[in-house]
Simulated assay, not measured.
Amino acid sequence: MALIVGTLAACSSGPRVPPASTSPGGPSTSFPTGAVIDTAPLGPPSLRAKSRWLPVRWAELPGFDDDALHEAWNAWLRNCERPHAALAGLCKDVRRLSIASPAEQRHWLQTQLQPYRVESLDGRSEGMLTSYYEPEMVGSRVRTAEFNIPLYRTPQSLGTRKPWYTRQQIETLPEAQAALAGREIAWLNDPVEALVLHIQGSGRLRITEPDGSVRQIRLAYAGTNDQPYKSVGRWLLDRGLITDASWPGISAWIAANPGRVQEMLWSNPRYVFFKEEPLEGLDAAFGPKGAQGVPLTPGRSIAVDRGSIPYGTPVWLYSKGMEVEYKRLVMAQDTGSAIVGAVRADYFMGWGKSAGDLAGRIKQPLRLWALWPKGLPVPQQ
Rank of each mutant, 00 (worst) to 15 (best):
P191S: 13
G293Y: 11
D226N: 11
V142K: 08
T33A: 08
C80H: 04
E276L: 13
K374G: 10
Y347W: 09
H70T: 07
V196W: 03
P373G: 05
G249C: 10
G34T: 04
P27L: 09
Y133C: 14
E193F: 06
S101L: 08
L219V: 07
L279N: 10
R306E: 12
R300V: 06
A220S: 14
S120M: 04
L173R: 13
L317P: 00
L121E: 04
A291L: 13
A85I: 09
L282A: 11
P155W: 12
K327P: 01
S23F: 11
L195T: 00
G203P: 04
D67M: 05
T130P: 02
A49W: 01
G287H: 12
E126Y: 03
R270C: 09
A345T: 01
P278S: 14
M137A: 12
E277C: 15
V261L: 14
T22I: 11
W266R: 14
I4H: 07
A9D: 05
Y116P: 00
T172Q: 11
I217H: 05
L366F: 05
G182F: 09
G6V: 02
V232E: 00
P44A: 10
S337C: 02
P365F: 10
E209P: 00
G182R: 08
W253C: 10
Y229C: 01
R328D: 10
P150W: 13
P41G: 03
D346A: 15
L195F: 15
L241Q: 12
M264C: 02
I362N: 01
P24K: 07
S120H: 02
S231I: 07
W108N: 15
V340Y: 11
G240C: 13
S98N: 03
L61P: 00
L158F: 11
L188E: 03
A68N: 14
D66S: 15
G259F: 08
P18G: 00
G182M: 12
Q114T: 12
G352T: 12
L358S: 06
W372A: 03
P269G: 06
V232P: 06
E175I: 10
I185L: 15
A85C: 01
G159R: 13
W247A: 01
N257P: 01
I149W: 11
T111L: 15
P298Y: 04
N225F: 04
E323F: 13
L329W: 11
D357T: 12
L188W: 07
T224C: 08
S46Q: 12
R215Y: 13
L180G: 00
K162A: 06
D93N: 15
W108T: 14
Q114D: 05
A103N: 02
R260Y: 13
A355Q: 08
P298Q: 04
L197V: 02
Y116N: 02
T111K: 15
W76M: 13
Q105W: 02
G259Y: 10
S246I: 06
A186G: 03
P310V: 04
C11V: 10
L197A: 03
P18D: 00
R270Y: 03
T160L: 15
S28P: 05
F147Q: 02
T224W: 10
E136F: 14
L358K: 07
W247F: 12
R367S: 05
F273C: 06
L329S: 09
